[in-house]
Amino acid sequence: MFKILKYSFMDLMRSRWSYVYFLFYLVLGFVLFFLNSNTTKAVITLMNVIILLTPLIGTIFGVMYFYSSREFTELLLAQPLKRSTIFAGQYLGVSFSLSMSLVFGIGIPFVLYGIFTSSAIWDFTTLLFIGAFLTFIFVALSFNIALLFNDKIKGFGFSILLWLFLAVVYDGLFLLSLLIFDDYPLDKLALGATLFNPIDLSRILILLKLDISALLGYTGAVFQKFFGTPLGMMVSFALLSVWVILPVVIMLFQTRKKDF
C-alpha cells in the first residue's frame, strides 16, 4: 500500500495542478499579509476561503485524478495486489498531496510573518488541521462518486452537486427549518444540524476559537458549552474522523464489488 501511496503521491507532486494549488495558497497568504499585517484578521479571512475552497478542490481533484489515472489503476489491478491496498494507497496519495499544498502554501507566509510569536498560533493550527480534515473527507466522497459512475460527466456533475449541497443548500434548509420551528427551543436542533455537515462543523469550530464568537450570543453559549469542553472537542473531532472513515470504508467496499 505504501508503495502505491508513494507512486500516487510522487505522481501528483510532479503534476502541475498541485503546484498551482500550492501557489494559489502561497499568493493568498502573502496578499493577506500585504493588505493587513494582523494575523488574527488574516485567520478570519482565510477561514472563509478554506471552508469553501478545500472541499471544492478536494472534490474536483479527487474525481479528476480517479478518472485520469484509470488506465494505471487497471494496470495495477492486473497485478497480484489486494484491491483495498490499491485504492487506499491512491486515496491517501491524493489527500496527502492536497493537504501538503494547503499546509505549506498557507504555512510559509504565516511563518514568515511571525505566527510563532503571535497569539493566533492555536487558531491557525486549528484552521490548518480542519483544512486537512476537509480535504480528506471530500477526496473520499469524490472517490465514491467516481467509483459509482463510469461516465466522467456524470461523476463530475454529481461531485459538484455534493459540494453545492453541503456548502450552500444544506445551510439554506437549515435556516428554513430554524425559521419554521421558531416557536420551539432550537439550540439542540441547531447543534445537531451542524454536527451532520462537515463544512458547518468546521465553520463553527473555527468561529468559536475567534473572538467573533461573542456575536453568537445565547446560541453561541450553548455551542461554547458543548465545544468548549474537552468532551465536545473530542466529539467534534471524532465526528470529523467519522466523516473520513465512513466514506473510505464504503469506497473500499465498493471497490471489492465493482467490475472493472
Binding site: 472563509n48 439554506g172 430554524l178 425559521l179 441547531a190 468561529l207 456575536l215 453568537l216 446560541t219 453561541g220
Partner: peptide
Amino acid sequence: YIVNQTPETIILLRSLFVDI
C-alpha cells in the same frame, strides 16, 4: 433581520448561503 427574528439563526454566520 432574520437574526433579530430568530436569534438561533446566528449560528449560520459567515456561511456562504448567508452571503448569497
